[in-house]
Design a protein around this nucleic acid. Structure first.
Lengths: 417, 417
DNA sequence: GTCGAGAGTGTTAGCGTTCTCATCCCCGAC
DNA sequence: GTCGGGGATGAGAACGCTAACACTCTCGAC
């Protein structure tokens, strides 16, 4: 099933469907039809191997036109009735190619049992008429919309943005369209609305960039028959999930700092109700424990630079702080600034490691050592998971974890002991 | 029972179609005619106190079921035939409410000439069956998909991301769904493909986050009947455009620096083939001219921090440089770093102004003075423009410009003369 | 020659809505 | 009483497509 036959972009190169084109020769009306050779291809075609004694005439009164010629009074036998710009349909293509609409359908769907000659004749007709298959009709009869829904939330975090692109691309390759719905906040109710909106569009499945449990819960409420997949959050098993292994990422970061000789590592976490934030805290804490290092207290914040700045000011005032692992790069940016304002240099006085590896991290002052996660890949994989569910392929029930990696730049250094 | 009739989110609050439903207990139930309507609700209802006792029976042989029950031979009078999980349609609602499907349609579309009693009866039935209108069928007959297409490109720039949210939100409020297509590069061909993909979905219009002329050109090729709108780029009149007044923004920035006493202002531009970049250059140059200040040469780059860093190194080596206007905040970040590495402090030695006001700009070192543009608003307005075109409302032919504003922070200061 | 298999093709039903009429009522005007 | 008008409904007919058959040939096997 060539993913999408329909899209034949004829126009591009040349042949702007020329003269009579747009509406397949209204050939309809005029039975005898001198008109027959009006439409460019029409002539070529109709004349062609008109199969068995060509079409006596489209049996019956030709139901193909809509308004059955209202202009009674008009003598006009040539019925040049103004063609209500009817869109070209399979019927038109069929007529032009001299076959039945069913055969056209077969060609378009790449089904077997169509002779090469017929096939190419149909394809030509399609091209000439600039025909495009009507998705609605198709969806109606197959009850497959070939569309997946994507729930995103309002943020300019680099991660979600990259994921959107990754998802759309992967979906297209898998033969699906992507419809989006965004939520302002991540509370259950808002997400439920988004789910509802997407269902109204009859999407076949839903992917949510879902960093919180509330989102996953809402997702789990999607009507049965509409599989869902969450990316990046939730630690209950409500819905199949996919994300970077945050625990491991935090380990990497913390260990790196410990290895540089720091006695312990402080942490400026993201919001407490985000599983990703919690996982990073866990990874950090575990590593500290394993190394027998003291575990400093953490104060919850959000993912913003502002949050990092605020918390950074506190940390900066504490001479005992020599290494800080930040919940994400934005936070790190804020911490960096607070440290700078307090006169403590990085990495000489304090070492910093972030998380996410946003595109600008390499240009912070100093360039930020951080944990990289491949968002685009995450998006891609999530589509894979969803498609598998749509196909009924069994999928792992536990969250899928992608491995993050540490990007060493200049914000963390050996202690100055 | 109720296998899953309604594929949907059962009542959010509570009452999952349960017995207690809105009106009187349909509790009764199964009784009447076992064989008859095996349709879940059907039974429940017909038996129920369907208002005016009346409605003898939905007259007619009930063509409503599909396969007329093949199991002829089967004795099984109780017809527990496995219910091919048919989706609930208007017909089911109609039957339940004791009206015709046409009346249901009228209620759902809020048309006049439906008595209050009937209306609420229908609404109840809808609720109970958890009925949801089939968009495909609707689209097929109305030839309105109520969907608009959005073309975005792969970037983590904060602008595009914010616009996506703004667009989706505005579209939803206007009653449209949003389907996306992304392009890896902004060349004509790629965009044409995206347009094609969206058209295959029968979107009613297309909005492109289209910072380059090539995109606008491709957009102009959309089939007639599919209006398009571009956001943020293109200066030829190929397509209705909407964007922030970049010339004015650049003026604001340049003038601010000049007012601080700088003899002239250097500029690190974005890519030369982006109208937005060009406009910023123009605004900067015009302001310089107007002030009689010398116009330093500019070297093209791209929008990245890296580009700014590279160019910044050159500028940093030039003692004559005291003020720099950067094409965007990312570039500014790179310039900031280059300056820092060269030992020149900001803003004491050199003043910097950026463009875009990305969320982190306030936490750069030092906090960046920059030009703010309201991306979300841009997205919102673009939907307004597209909807106007869809409605046939005349719209301005020249690009719509939104006013940017200057956000003064700490990266630009009076010269140290 | 008869048959059966199977390729190639056409015919006919729907899919679930909306649209266009036709119908049925109830009312006030004549 | 009869009629016309308008409100409330219902009965099909599309919409453009795919699915399920039915049909027509052509071959090769018997």
């Amino acid at each position: 099933m060539s993913p999408d036959i329909g899209r034949l972009v004829p126009g591009r190169p040349g042949a702007p469907t020329a003269p009579g084109a747009p509406h397949g020769g209204p050939a309809g009306g005029p039975a005898a039809d001198p008109a027959g050779d009006r439409s460019v291809g029409g002539a070529r075609f109709m004349a062609a191997p008109v199969r068995r004694a060509g079409f006596p005439s489209p049996a019956g009164p030709d139901r193909s036109r809509r308004g059955p010629v209202a202009h009674a009074g008009g003598a006009a036998p040539d019925a040049v009735q103004v063609p209500p710009p009817r869109k070209v349909g399979m019927r038109d293509v069929a007529r032009l190619a001299g076959v039945s609409h069913q055969t056209v359908s077969r060609v378009l769907n790449d089904l077997p049992n169509v002779s090469d000659g017929t096939r190419s004749r149909v394809l030509d007709a399609v091209r000439i008429l600039n025909y495009r298959r009507n998705l609605a009709a198709r969806t109606l009869v197959t009850s497959r919309s070939r569309t997946i829904g994507l729930i995103g939330f309002e943020t300019t975090l680099a991660g979600p943005a990259s994921m959107i692109y990754g998802i759309e691309k992967a979906a297209r390759e898998a033969g699906y369209y992507v419809s989006i719905a965004t939520v302002r906040s991540l509370d259950r109710h808002a997400v439920l609305d988004a789910v509802e909106q997407l269902c109204a569009q009859a999407v076949e499945g839903i992917i949510a960039i879902a960093p919180k449990n509330s989102v996953a819960d809402a997702l789990a409420q999607a009507p049965p028959g509409t599989p869902t997949v969450g990316v990046g959050g939730a630690d209950d098993g409500a819905v199949p999930m996919l994300r970077v292994d945050n625990v491991r990422g935090a380990c990497l970061a913390t260990r790196h700092l410990l290895d540089l000789g720091h006695r312990t590592v402080h942490h400026v976490p993201g919001p407490a109700d985000w599983p990703e934030g919690r996982d990073r805290i866990d990874g950090w804490r575990q590593t500290l424990h394993a190394a027998g290092a003291p575990v400093p207290p953490v104060a919850a914040g959000d993912w913003s630079a502002r949050s990092g700045y605020l918390r950074g000011q506190v940390l900066a005032a504490d001479a005992g702080v020599t290494a800080v692992f930040c919940g994400n790069d934005h936070i790190a940016l804020g911490v960096l600034r607070a440290l700078h304002e307090a006169g403590r240099t990085v990495p000489d006085d304090v070492s910093i490691v972030g998380f996410d590896d946003m595109p600008e991290s390499g240009y912070f002052l100093p360039p930020l050592t951080t944990v990289h996660q491949d968002f685009a890949e995450l998006g891609r994989r999530s589509v894979g998971l969803l498609v598998a569910r749509l196909d009924g392929t069994p999928i792992p029930t536990s969250p899928v974890h992608l491995a993050p990696s540490l990007i060493v730049r200049a914000s963390a250094a050996r202690t100055q002991v």
